[in-house]
């Protein structure tokens, strides 16, 4: 009966603490939602930052993801680990947003045609750096950012989830709704592309 219903510990993924928090929030605990946010926000922010390549966009989209989580709480049924579900929302949100604003993953090696003239693409670095700060490390960071951003969307997601979020092949497969074999294949191609994109730096630092 409604009055005497106890916690159902047989529900799937109940051992996942985040799933438990989400279920607590579903029952009305605002604190549970804030705990979920504090726990996952930094990771999600970094996932989206690496995915979009822009911090401000990442902040906005991370907020958007949590708004979606909040709104979907009433219909939430744990069918996967919480982080798998969360990153799936994050990926879809980021992808939709990038499409909406017509952002594109563009290789910086390509050029733009203006008045019939081919002009190289440039990224403006708004941070003012002292000359001594413009070092190899900074160049590497920028090169890595560009290399990740230049990857095809699916390869980019796989690389970020594997390299930065520490996801297993199985977790990536569940997040992206593809087979583990497809994950390995995407990861191999992504690594090959990254190696090619960073080869100048690799041999420059040898």
């Amino acid at each position: 009966m409604f009055f005497f219903k106890s916690e159902d510990k047989t529900i799937p993924y109940f051992s996942d603490p985040d799933v438990r928090l989400m279920l607590e929030f579903q029952k009305g605990s605002k604190e549970a939602f804030e705990t979920l946010m504090r726990k996952n926000y930094p990771f999600l922010l970094n996932f989206i930052y690496r995915y979009t390549g822009d911090k401000a966009t990442a902040e906005d989209l991370t907020q958007e993801v949590f708004i979606r989580v909040y709104k979907s709480a009433s219909t939430y049924v744990p069918r996967a680990q919480f982080k798998t579900w969360l990153y799936k929302i994050a990926r879809n949100t980021s992808l939709n947003e990038l499409r909406r604003y017509k952002y594109r993953a563009v290789s910086l090696n390509t050029t733009i045609e203006i008045d019939g003239e081919q002009i190289p693409r440039q990224i403006e670095d708004k941070k003012i750096r002292r000359p001594d700060e413009i070092l190899i490390h900074s160049e590497t960071v920028q090169a890595v950012k560009r290399a990740i951003y230049a990857l095809p969307e699916r390869q980019r997601v796989v690389i970020i989830l594997r390299r930065y979020e520490g996801f297993s092949y199985q977790e990536i497969a569940r997040t992206m709704k593809i087979s583990e074999k497809a994950v390995k294949s995407l990861l191999s191609r992504a690594r090959e592309n990254l190696k090619n994109a960073l080869s100048c730096l690799i041999h420059g630092q040898k």
């Binding site: 946010m37 960071v141 890595v144 190696k195 730096l201």
Partner: peptide, 23 residues
């Protein structure tokens, strides 16, 4: 070496911190 080095280089992209007051 190239595969290893490029994989390691990804580690140079350090994580960012959320802006205070995000909650």
């Amino acid at each position: 070496y190239e595969y290893k080095r490029s994989w390691e280089m990804l580690g140079t992209l350090e994580p960012i911190e959320p802006t205070p007051g995000y909650i």
